[in-house]
Amino acid sequence: MSRVPSPPPPAEMSSGPVAESWCYTQIKVVKFSYMWTINNFSFCREEMGEVIKSSTFSSGANDKLKWCLRVNPKGLDEESKDYLSLYLLLVSCPKSEVRAKFKFSILNAKGEETKAMESQRAYRFVQGKDWGFKKFIRRDFLLDEANGLLPDDKLTLFCEVSVVQDSVNISGQNTMNMVKVPECRLADELGGLWENSRFTDCCLCVAGQEFQAHKAILAARSPVFSAMFEHEMEESKKNRVEINDVEPEVFKEMMCFIYTGKAPNLDKMADDLLAAADKYALERLKVMCEDALCSNLSVENAAEILILADLHSADQLKTQAVDFINYHASDVLETSGWKSMVVSHPHLVAEAYRSLASAQCPFLGPPRKRLKQS
């Protein structure tokens, strides 16, 4: 649940008159999402009104509101027999009622949201009550392989729920002597030191190019640089560091992050930047690179990204790559990247197969709970 924001200063709310007192009302909304995959969808019983329910879910471990999704594969009634019906059901509720908006969509073979439908307002739910769409999607369109909505005969539904909580009022009075504290510009100011090479005390040599930097900042941000300058190493004695395995453009992006906490060109060089972040123990930059690479996972590059993640101990990226390969196994196994990995990294192939087997055979063990970014 997000923290209630402070109200904007009255002088910034309007260029008009300023009242002596004010009130700011925040209506709290808890948002969460749920993904439900139905394997072997074409084998569902086709009687009209037949119901399939998901397991229950909530916004978190401490949330007492429990929900589930309900599907009628062949419609709810005679009117909707040519459609799939989809509903959000409130299973248990400690209150007399709650209000919530919802959005349903289908994830296609690429994991993209399609055929989205959402409620136009927050509906009133009581325990045992459901709301949804009797005519969510035509069955003939859903079952047509050309539309790519049932890869490997799996129907994957994605649901986003927004639950309306209580409202909170914050009130106060205006004073004539309003003090406005300026925003912190530390990142910009440190970035200026790097860009202008002011007050530098060490030189970093990268592929024949020299960059002036500040030992204190490098040591504070990177345990690797800290070790170089702290001990009686040649880098500490000469205040000069030779860097041979990072390209200059990648190095500059890494230094921008060290000084400012930002990497504006990360998406263009996420793979190389991940390697640099791993070498210099820049954990936050490493996770930022993992996130960017996750966003660009595809059938063509899944094997290469899995190898990269394994090489640099990028655990979150590795998990996402394995899950992606499992979901698109029939396509990924035909790529040149996968065939190369079979020869060069057989242990990763074995890991992917083990994960695929456990996903398809849940009876082999208890269900695993899916539970950071600093």
Rank of each mutant, 00 (worst) to 15 (best):
N174H: 01
C93F: 03
I137D: 14
K318D: 01
N296C: 13
W131I: 01
L65R: 10
R99W: 10
C294Y: 06
E351R: 03
D323I: 06
D278T: 10
Q212V: 11
D153G: 07
S59T: 01
Y24A: 03
F141Y: 11
R354L: 05
A11K: 02
E113N: 08
M255G: 11
A219K: 15
V332N: 00
L306Q: 01
S21M: 13
V342S: 14
L333H: 14
G148M: 11
L204A: 15
S119H: 02
S298E: 03
S313Q: 13
N296F: 11
A314Q: 12
A213V: 11
N108C: 13
L86I: 06
L150F: 07
I52N: 02
N147R: 09
R45D: 13
D323K: 08
N326R: 07
E247C: 05
Q165C: 08
M176K: 03
K135C: 13
Q127A: 07
V161E: 01
D245E: 10
L274S: 02
K103C: 15
Y259R: 00
F141T: 07
V322M: 06
Q26K: 04
I106Y: 13
S222G: 05
V29D: 08
T114C: 12
A303F: 09
S374T: 14
R138C: 08
V299Q: 10
V342P: 04
A352D: 01
H345Y: 08
N72Y: 10
S58F: 05
I325A: 11
D63A: 11
S85W: 08
D278V: 01
A302G: 11
H347V: 04
S55E: 13
Q212C: 15
F41I: 04
S313V: 06
L142C: 09
V98W: 07
A321C: 04
T156K: 05
S119V: 10
S374N: 15
I258V: 02
C361M: 12
H347A: 12
L306P: 01
Y280V: 01
A220Q: 14
C44N: 03
P5Q: 08
G60P: 07
V91M: 08
G208A: 15
C68V: 12
M233W: 05
S197V: 15
C23T: 14
S14V: 03
K95R: 15
S55D: 10
S85T: 13
E334D: 09
M176R: 04
K74M: 14
N244Y: 05
E97I: 05
K339Q: 07
I27N: 13
V71E: 11
V250D: 06
L150I: 04
E210R: 05
S96E: 12
Y353W: 08
S298Q: 11
E334A: 12
V224A: 15
T319V: 14
F102P: 00
F199I: 15
